[in-house]
Design a protein around this nucleic acid. Structure first.
Length: 315
DNA sequence: AGACCCCTGCTG
DNA sequence: CAGCAGGGGTCT
């Protein structure tokens, strides 16, 4: 279930393999996962940028190599980690703080491949050689140095090829602020929660209000903050909002440093699982002792989704 | 705000 | 083998 930390990890792991490379061919095995322009329009384009907005990955493609934007082009050394370099980079700006906040963001390419991984989507760069065909591989993008494989068992994700100029008013990219952006202050979070009667967890999960939070990190952040997930959002006190703001940022940054959470499906851009599962306090741990107080973790349904929390720590 | 849908692998 | 799981969109 790729949420913000997983998509960010995929983005970072793919940069050294894709940036500056030319798309030589696109093979679409499952046409229903594709939206927008014809995949053939990508062929011959340079990859000029990889950006993330919430859980969405944006791969910029340009006719010429010179129009590489922002990312690696202006941050030499920060992103140009050579293939195979496994060093975690948790100190390069806080994982996403440098990303655009949305309006007037970095210039995208002539075309943008917009990727949403749904629940089980994977984007993995494979070295040359034909790996065993898998019925869950829906598309493959060939480069000189290997191929990018798009896989998705449940097919909740999609690939969408769009003109770079059209991203600004894309309905699915009308997202709330990035929680790791420097501008995500306690004041901003308070504004998001104020006056809302909906459960605070439902507000955190609403991508239009805040981008990138999914079921796992909503539960983990609320546990860290000691806030019950069903509390009406507008009822949180100022101190609680501040604590929740810090908890959100901490859990996301720690998860990025651990390269994401793998239960079963998630893999990074090199096919490796993330390591954050062992650090989860409540998510997926019904009946286990709360790490803070020992009370068994409870599970409850909220909007059809499982919600895990400590009935004692979270008021 | 809740029901339903997409889809497939795993669980009971 | 029926039913559950779940991000997110749509519909009621």
């Amino acid at each position: 279930m790729p949420e913000l930390p997983e998509v960010e990890t995929i983005r970072r792991t793919l940069i050294p393999y894709l940036l500056g490379q030319v798309v030589r061919a696109v093979h679409l095995f499952t046409p229903t996962v594709w939206r927008g322009q014809d995949p053939a329009a990508m062929v011959g384009c340079y990859v000029t940028g990889l950006d993330r907005r919430g859980k969405h990955l944006l791969i910029s493609l340009s006719r010429s190599p010179g129009s590489a934007h922002g990312d690696a082009a202006s941050r030499p050394g920060a992103s140009d980690q050579p293939p195979g370099g496994a060093a975690a980079r948790s100190a390069d700006g806080g994982g996403g703080a440098e990303r655009s906040a949305g309006s007037g963001g970095p210039a995208l390419g002539d075309l943008v491949l917009h990727v949403h991984l749904g629940m089980t989507g994977r984007l993995i760069f494979l070295p040359p050689g034909d790996p065993a065909p898998d019925r869950h591989v829906h598309a493959r993008f060939s480069f000189d140095r290997g191929a990018l494989s798009y896989q998705d068992t449940r097919r909740f994700g999609y690939l969408e090829l769009l003109p770079g100029s059209s991203l600004g008013d894309h309905p699915r990219l009308r997202l709330g602020p990035e929680p790791l952006d420097g501008s995500f202050t306690t004041e901003v979070l308070r504004g998001m929660l104020a006056g809302r009667r909906a459960p605070v967890k439902a507000v955190l999960l609403d991508q239009h209000i805040m981008a990138g939070i999914g079921n796992i990190y909503a539960d983990e952040a609320l546990h860290r903050a000691g806030v019950h997930p069903l509390r009406p959002a507008g009822d949180l006190g100022e101190r609680e909002v501040e604590t929740l703001r810090d908890a959100l940022r901490e859990v996301l940054e720690e998860a990025i440093a651990a390269r994401g959470t793998t239960f079963s499906d998630y893999r990074d851009g090199e096919g490796r699982p993330g390591e954050f599962v062992s650090r989860l306090c409540v998510y997926g741990r019904e009946g286990e002792a709360c790490p803070r107080c020992g009370t068994p973790v409870a599970r409850q349904r909220l909007g059809g989704r499982s919600t895990y929390f400590c009935p004692r720590c979270q008021k």
